[in-house]
């Protein structure tokens, strides 16, 4: 990539930072140039976020239908997978899977609920009384 060809498109990095790109200067030698972003990858990031929104909406639907517990919604909202949630709560993955079902969720003690709420950075109340 030539220095003159470095894209300077609008991106989520705006007002935070610009990124270093390695490019060829006019003499054909390597140099660095700062870039504000590249449209091709900006769209990739935007699409990834749309997918996260779609998954949280889908979680809401499942909760409404009585197929899932609020934990599924907050997991999606906080972009967590089982490894991450298990890490923050200290609860084993197979138990988390059980808590994703409405029945498993209903049986949870307040102390377990607290561990989930802390991981999601919400109150126990918000978790317990989540309206999809």
């Amino acid at each position: 990539m030539k220095k003159s060809e470095v894209p300077q498109d609008k991106s989520a990095l705006e007002n935070f930072t610009r990124e270093v790109c390695y490019v060829k200067n006019e003499d054909g030698h390597y140099d660095t140039e700062l870039s504000t972003g590249w449209e091709a990858k900006k769209v990739a990031l935007d699409e990834a976020w749309k997918e996260i929104e779609r998954r949280t909406l889908d979680a809401r639907e499942q909760i409404k239908k009585g197929l899932a517990s609020p934990i599924l919604y907050f997991m999606e909202e906080k972009l967590m997978d089982f490894t991450v949630l298990s890490g923050y709560t200290g609860i084993w993955k197979f138990r988390i899977k059980r808590h994703l079902k409405p029945n498993g969720f209903k049986k949870l003690s307040d102390s377990t609920l607290k561990r989930y709420a802390d991981a999601f950075e919400i109150s126990v109340d918000e978790l317990k009384n989540f309206k999809a």
Partner: peptide, 24 residues
């Protein structure tokens, strides 16, 4: 499409110097 988007992000996002570290 989302899978392809993930490849592009791993390859081009901030931290790579562009072109999947190849220019670096």
């Amino acid at each position: 499409g989302l899978h392809l988007g993930q490849i592009v992000r791993m390859q081009e996002e901030i931290g790579t110097g562009g072109g999947g570290f190849r220019f670096l």
